[in-house]
Design a binder for these strands. Structure first.
Lengths: 408, 408
DNA sequence: CTATATTGTTCCAACTCCGAACAAATACCG
DNA sequence: CGGTATTTGTTCGGAGTTGGAACAATATAG
């Protein structure tokens, strides 16, 4: 039961019903392709006449196409309908501290080309260089006419509406108008989003697996930091100041270990890869400056190494991981009590040890979950897709085609 | 950008546009009454012809009525339209440990009758007794035909869809089918909701003050426990297991004081009235059993007494309150980082000392807020309306009349 | 070849917004 | 006092939409 916003509403016109139904049809075709007009009509509970009209328009718009005819026991054979994704393309960009990832993707998230290069930190140069690489990639792939935009995922705070990067401490970027600069340099529409959120968008819009068909979940990626996207009712929570979902910096204990953000006791300071490694090596992070913390995380010994040692029988390594698992579960419990999603998806290096830690995590989670049903909230390791962030960046461009029309 | 739920969608029919626009018109009339048809048409950006038709239907449905004619400089005088709320009634029930509150209210939340009596804990008797009182109240108020339902606010977990009370520890109620029992006994539609959420609904649907016109806020009521309602995009977050928004039991420090819920370090254990009082009296709550904790909160010395002492110059009283203020701010910071609402509304006895604690609270909040704009999130003391919970219970019945139609 | 079944199209009725014309009501002005 | 201008509210035809039914197209079974 939603209250209508009397300061920002949308009146229905005589074409609104069509727009709504066309969009529903498009989504049903996307989910059940290949599907016939008659099947579509049944699923929508409309007459075949209406479904035919909707299909005709979707074909005219180039959103779907007719494929082969199907086989049925009796009667006229149906013509199957398919979503047109193969030749609708987006450029996805994932900017990280060490490398920048550049992918050409179709609207289903399939990778067509990939380029990885050292990140350029000076903004004008970054934009100029990126624009050049995008042009070249589109040209060599023969995709110049089909690319509908550029999606950019950035590790930091982003105002998605304006496309401004407010603060990306890892990259040293503050208040950068990425969208307009990149759009001007390439002539393509640009969307910018935080990388944790981008991952959740990849899951929401591009995950094919039927088990992923939930409209309400929290996507948590644990690595150097903790990236989170909260999806409620099929919509990503963004918040008034674009920081909604920042569970990484909720306290587990106010006087806990120092966090890279400058505060103490943040969840991130308990479960990040650096936190786990420092438990193993006995580092005292609280005595380090925020800057020194950044450096400490860039050593040569990584989480996969630690997991390998734990599997190899290293008791101390296992203890460090189990400790992280416990704090992970305690934090998850709060997320469950507060957002109460259908499901939680977990990503990051720690998930390679999921078989080792699931029990500990679930036990800690159950300790602080408010009800037994909440304690049973599924925690799934996110499908081991490659380049989730890049897929999320692509989703920024692809999603508007399929999203529900704004109404009332 | 919302993803369409392909398993639960609503196709647009040929009457959908009208339904949408009728509902928009109704809300605009509600907000700007008295208002003419011509004015309504301008606000909606439709022709006067359309607005006239919408108004005609709303009048036929008995949702609005024509009032006096207005004055204009030139031309034909407009006929003003008004929302019909005076003779549309709801019964609101607020069940607390000591007393049960019963109110007859109109659809604007105005109180027409109030009855307070000792809470009956045996369910069948509670229902029978309540039904009798409701019948009597409707009869003595001459409102038998106009009452459109009963809204019930309960301190505990409620499945709003089925109207089941899952667990109300204060009352000792578990898995009670309140809705169907009460509906059977009274013949009226019944809606049940958690009392913290009910307060947020009162604010969302019945608050007249224009300053309250935000679609995204968190309502926090601090008393024996911490009741919270999270409203995002004009919609109350309920969650998969009906516990969304339970910030009261997020940890500030895992090894903090014992909470009534059985866990330790919950925010509630730092800021509830009992927590504040126990700081003043030097009680050690951690050594008490959950049951003993319940008892401790029912003493004769209350928060208003403590606030009075603080104002009178009692240094220890002030210290106890300031300590609570600090923990309040630290918890608010996490809520802001996680939900990032437009605004936070605060209610409960502690707000009588708001002038004493605002500075401390804001300071603590700023310490842990992730951005400077987040740190500036307005924290307002909820309008000192009487019986907010009862108004919320009434809103459960009144709101569906004004809510946005479900589409796509 | 006929009966049956299914798909997809076409047509009209009912309902909607949209634009314009029209009637009603009022103030202003000569 | 009457005409003009202005605003409100209604009415009517046009175009876009769903809903229902008839129809054409296509295939199988016997």
């Amino acid at each position: 039961m939603r209250k209508i916003n009397t300061h920002d509403f949308k009146v229905a016109t005589r074409t609104t019903s069509r727009e709504i139904n066309r969009r529903i049809a498009l989504n049903l075709i996307r989910e059940h392709q290949p599907i016939s007009r008659a099947d579509l009509a049944r699923r929508m509970s409309v007459t075949r006449g209406v479904a035919s009209m909707l299909v005709q328009e979707l074909i005219a718009q180039g959103l779907i196409y007719e494929g082969a005819t199907g086989e049925v026991a009796r009667g006229r054979k149906p013509t199957f309908l398919h979503i047109r994704t193969r030749d609708r393309l987006a450029v996805a960009v994932d900017v990280r501290f060490s490398k920048t990832y550049l992918m050409l993707s179709d609207f289903s998230g399939r990778q067509l080309a990939l380029e990885i290069y050292d990140t350029v930190f000076a903004i004008p140069q970054f934009v100029k260089d990126l624009a050049r690489r995008v042009r070249r990639m589109l040209k060599t792939q023969g995709a110049e006419g089909n690319c509908e935009g550029i999606g950019v995922a950035v590790p930091g705070m982003v105002d998605h509406r304006t496309g401004r990067i407010l603060n990306a401490p890892t990259l040293g970027w503050r208040d950068v108008d990425m969208r307009d600069q990149l759009a001007a340099a390439t002539g393509l529409p640009v969307q910018v989003e935080n990388s944790g959120r981008a991952c959740s968008l990849a899951h929401l819009w591009l995950e094919r697996d039927a088990a992923a068909a939930t409209q309400s979940f929290v996507y948590i990626s644990v690595s150097d930091g903790v990236g989170i996207g909260v999806v409620v009712g099929g919509e990503l929570m963004r918040g008034h100041d674009h920081i909604a979902g920042e569970f990484g910096h909720m306290p587990l204990s106010l006087d806990g270990p120092r966090c890279m953000c400058g505060m103490t006791g943040c969840w991130e300071a308990y479960i990040s890869n650096l936190a786990t490694l420092s438990r193993y090596f006995g580092w005292n992070l609280s005595k380090l400056s925020p800057k020194a913390l950044h450096e400490a995380g860039r050593g040569s010994f990584t989480m996969p190494d630690l997991v390998a040692r734990a599997r190899g029988g290293d008791v101390k390594a296992n203890a460090a991981i189990q400790s992280t698992a416990r704090f992970l579960g305690l934090g998850l419990a709060t997320i469950i009590n507060v957002i109460n999603p259908d499901c939680i998806y977990l990503a990051g290096e720690i998930t390679t040890a999921w078989d080792l830690i699931e029990g500990t995590t679930r036990e800690a989670l159950s300790e602080r979950a408010l009800t037994s049903s909440a304690a049973r909230t599924p925690v799934r390791v996110a499908a081991a897709q490659e380049h989730t962030r890049l897929r999320g960046a692509a989703a920024l461009i692809a999603a508007p085609t399929f999203a529900a029309p704004r109404v009332a």
